[in-house]
Design a protein around this nucleic acid. Sequence first.
DNA 1: CTGAAAGCGCTTACAG
DNA 2: CTGAAAGCGCTTACAG
Lengths: 352, 352
Amino acid sequence: MAVTLATVAQRAGVSPATVSRVLNGDYPVAAETRKRVEKAVRELDYVVNAHARALLHSTSGLVGAILNDVSDPFFALVLRGIQVAAGDLGRLVVTAHSDGDPDRELAGIDLLRRQRADAVIVVGSGPEDTEYRRQLAAQARGLRAQDSRLVLCGRPKPARDAPASVVTFDDVATGRALVEHLVGLGHRRIAYLGGPPGRTTSTDRRRGVVEGLERAGLKVDERLLADGDGTREAGHARVGELLDSGLDFTAIIGSNDQLAIGALAALRDVGWSVPEDMSVAGIGDLPGAADLVPSLTTVHLSLEEAGRQAVSLAFAPQGPARTVILPHRLIVRDSTGRARKRTSTRPRRGSS
Amino acid sequence: MAVTLATVAQRAGVSPATVSRVLNGDYPVAAETRKRVEKAVRELDYVVNAHARALLHSTSGLVGAILNDVSDPFFALVLRGIQVAAGDLGRLVVTAHSDGDPDRELAGIDLLRRQRADAVIVVGSGPEDTEYRRQLAAQARGLRAQDSRLVLCGRPKPARDAPASVVTFDDVATGRALVEHLVGLGHRRIAYLGGPPGRTTSTDRRRGVVEGLERAGLKVDERLLADGDGTREAGHARVGELLDSGLDFTAIIGSNDQLAIGALAALRDVGWSVPEDMSVAGIGDLPGAADLVPSLTTVHLSLEEAGRQAVSLAFAPQGPARTVILPHRLIVRDSTGRARKRTSTRPRRGSS
DNA sequence: CTGAAAGCGCTTACAG
DNA sequence: CTGAAAGCGCTTACAG
């Protein structure tokens, strides 16, 4: 049925071993023989079976990536970096998506272990749940035992001793940087739109914001720290609520660009101007942030670079697990400006 | 070294066959034995080798996807659809990216054939080059011979008789729909920003625009049809040039949303208002199109649905190759409006 | 209910 | 330069 090495060998009138040698081209074969074999390969449209190969060597040439959601630009950019770097190494990328569900993430790693992936890269923030972290650490050890490895991209290790490399950003510092920027512009009451609670990134960015406020000697008003699922819609809704609440604030930090975009939309709804009536900032600097009106002040994260680094850590020659913290960069654009002088001049909801 | 079925069997004091049966759970095994085996599996952290399995059955459980660029939202959305549908079928997705290079695309298919992917989905517009189409058709036949199949998502078949299924949009109709919309608003001179020449989608959308103009009895001014690589930057640059050229036009159709975004930016640069001074529309309705200011009139394409359909075509029970044309939908937002009455009132470049 | 044996499609020492 | 044979890690008739 299927064309195998044996089929080719028969057609070319040689042994399977010889065909294999021609194909791999790493062994002396008579020019004449080679030609016959190549002809047979062409005529039969023979394509080597990667599984048979993978069985011999214990490597598959596959690198696995687990993502929340490929259509989210954050993950898409990291994935691109992974693809480029993996491509350069002649490896294919196998992706599984978890939708942020810890169990699906773990199940994804398992599937990838079955495929004997040369490395598994788990992208994005992780659940802080203890049991989950225990299991992830176990998967890290399992991969190691298979001569593969786990690389975490965008989150810290689940346990100090987990054999996993990490490439991530200093999420605490990104939150702090935004607060410092806004405080420098005279803002004293800053609202914060958090991401899904119980996830490393959400916790860290929020901590950064709180630290920033404290360092500036400002008191933290919990009522201005709004949680949500991190989507544009959540940002839109939370800002609507904050506006309705009558609380006083002059700036909004979205813990990601989507939230900031939602905030901009909510402000547009009520006719407030940004940055005149309210400053808005995000984190991520995803494509399009500069094309918003007003263009978005945000913290740039080199996501594609993170993906590339993850692959390079994955295939680094031996050595213990490493941790790389990638730099971030505050990008000041038009959505943040000096704080309003007097709150009494603030426009009222629906004033437009 | 590595933990195999044999290791588990030995530990549990049974034969490999029994372990296999416990693992697959499709065969009677004594409860007592089962328990012992499961214990051994757990203790050894045994993970079955998918390659050994793939060698037995001739299926791998992998679906392959070839994309220009995962970080482009168009492709990211299709990929998400593919992942969701493949996940529902218990299959993993292997991705390769081509950056639009025909040779890399073909090479990607080859890698996927080696992996014995159950199906290969090639996403996005295709080169119109004859030689390329011949080779793609050959790959389609090769996949078919391997009991796999080729599905094209977003482009037509490379040849009438190529054994490939197709899920795509009516690109000609999308271009035409936009022209009709604009003509209905009184526009008579419409500029068009094309995508990369020599690609199916570019050609079709452009044809749609030209057809639309002709049907409306308008004459086609080639000078208003600008080609480019389809990026935001190209849109920005082309519109700048068109503005400088002094040609008269009141609306711009970007053959994708990125081009339209670039157009909006270029108009902002010179202080023109949209839609008062110029109408702008795109194709795609990518996330964020509604958050632009002004929000973008565009043609909605159900990209995620296209990905899902591609998988469903790939695993449809037998049957000849099929072609599915997904519906598109004109979404009128704020970036298009009635044509200016008198061209003489048009603001001049740099008037702002 | 359990095991021995063959075989999936390759590669690689080992001989010649 | 070429081939016969063993083996990678599984599954599945075939016996029992």
